[in-house]
Design a binder for these strands. Sequence first.
DNA 1: TTGAAAGCGCTAACAG
DNA 2: CTGTTAGCGCTTTCAA
Lengths: 369, 369
Amino acid sequence: MPSSPAPAPDRKRLRSPAPARQARRGHGRVTLETVASAAGVTAITVSRFLREPSRVAPETAERIRTALAQSGYVPNKQAGLLASGRSNMVAALLPNLANSIFAETAQGLSDGLQAAGFELLIASTGYSLEREEQQLRALLGWHPAALVVTGRRHAPGALKLLADAKAAGTPVIEIWDHHPPAPGLRPITFTQIGFNHDEVGAAMAGHLLRAGHRRLAYVDSGVAEDYRAHERGMAFAAAVRAAGAQAVALSAPGGDAFDAGRQVLAELLGAGPPAITAAAFANDHIASGALLEAARRGVAVPGRLALLGFGDFALARQLSPALSSVQLPRHAIGAAAAASLLAALRLGRPAASAALPWTLVARGSTAGA
Amino acid sequence: MPSSPAPAPDRKRLRSPAPARQARRGHGRVTLETVASAAGVTAITVSRFLREPSRVAPETAERIRTALAQSGYVPNKQAGLLASGRSNMVAALLPNLANSIFAETAQGLSDGLQAAGFELLIASTGYSLEREEQQLRALLGWHPAALVVTGRRHAPGALKLLADAKAAGTPVIEIWDHHPPAPGLRPITFTQIGFNHDEVGAAMAGHLLRAGHRRLAYVDSGVAEDYRAHERGMAFAAAVRAAGAQAVALSAPGGDAFDAGRQVLAELLGAGPPAITAAAFANDHIASGALLEAARRGVAVPGRLALLGFGDFALARQLSPALSSVQLPRHAIGAAAAASLLAALRLGRPAASAALPWTLVARGSTAGA
DNA sequence: TTGAAAGCGCTAACAG
DNA sequence: CTGTTAGCGCTTTCAA
């Protein structure tokens, strides 16, 4: 008796609601019906019990509770979501997660969402608009209840997806940015929760100009697609020039950010005459690298060179001199986005934008005149 | 004519497979069928095209391609997964994400999984076993193809869920740990991918003992549930005592880790006689805080006090003196876990455990004797 | 308070 | 190469 083509399936008994009912590809999973028949009710009653226990008679409830406990039942979310047509997921796209700045935003989102029973689906883009579009497409397959993306620049395809989603009533929120719409540039706009990077760049310049510096550099991160850092740099340079001072644009090399900062210091010191006496950075890591290198070389900070970071990472206030920096609403951005989209979902109208506060924290590295 | 209760739905036409077919709660979403009828085929053909374009005639394919492009169709994953009974998701539980150590592991997992077409579902536990169990329960609702948890300590309920999953053939991997099973302690075991924290603790002690220290402290992180840090501390103390030297156990206060390290330095210096001349830390942040504070106070490192970190964060080699530390396979743990579970899924047998290498990197903060 | 029927959007199996 | 049929596990609607 070789290869008899598998035993004939006994799919002839089409009777009764009993647990028999051999499924097409039934891999002995515990389903609502398993629990139901153990409790002597039908699936729908167990389903009701799970969602609104009060709508089930106390005795029935007790039997279901027992059956549930013994079965090891785990509700199947795909089935539930598919059947209800609802979604309790929010999809978020962040440039990366290893960077503590976005990790905190993710935490803020997660905190706000979890309390409301929503789940967070995160993907990272590595600052690439192309990857953002890919990831967005993948995420949309889950039919999320809302979308959170970073920044206001997106690939054309992504923009279309976002616009479609918005048109279909799905809240779309852009975080880490809050700019007035560029006149005539993009017709549709989304909710924005963040701050204005032009203002920050100008404020960084203002802080250094007020200390009397006349030749100032902005050191970019070197991440080509981090346009927010570029914007700060442009605004910085504009403000510097508006004050009649000189602006120099530098870019940090790739690799370890501390090392990049160390290398940039040489450029900073070598420039001139007239010498550059103050530098603002795209982030605290690069700034810290420069600060540490200055200490190693015996370069006086802020005497010879004033240094100003961005992000106010934990390390900033630990260095000597302590690094002046811009403190950001990292967690708040996530929390506010969660609150905004939750409200939008509840009220059925577009999510509200918000400009969140940042603070320039002056410390030793930019002290005095 | 006030509030006429909405126009009567035209649900009378039950004919033909045409796109009419008013659904029960059909909210004009674009489905396979929408695309199919636009292309003049049925849903299954579009479905096939999406998965295996070669199985569809070139002409048909072309029509489908057009219809697809115009429709803005987004496949519904819940429906697809439910119908196929498959899952392309891996659920991972990590203590937290803001900590770069775990963020890198998540990145490693994500990298490995993405290449194989799997998606990563991440939740963080905040080092709480209770939250781990909750999150695990929530994650299981997605019926993931594999589970990744951090460490080998779990709440009883979580342990049961994991054991059930394993029994059902779902690979379960414990990361960041690799210990021989404690005799008679836990009957069932899972795949482990990480390293032995006892060995690291002993190696940290060995490194300092070799430099001639006779009274050594281990500074714990103060996170009660980070048992891996405790284990390193226990092993550290055991090795110190085995060498006939004295071991002191300290714990860092909560709050900012750098500040905690600064505070601990005072304790370290105040202890004795005999004085503590070397300290090992639960992580580089606390160690760095101590190092920075030592510099501020003019305490000689390693002359008066040798300092040894754990984790080898980017900052470690930037300080002066540079901080000795233990370099960990942060990314590799995630990558190896991904590879192991992928192989297990493919071959249909249990995932393979692996001990990954770590390195004690000796730098200035523990130099000389 | 409970159940029967139908369907969410998709895919497996089996024709043709 | 394409279509038909049935069903994934759950929830909605309506009836009892």
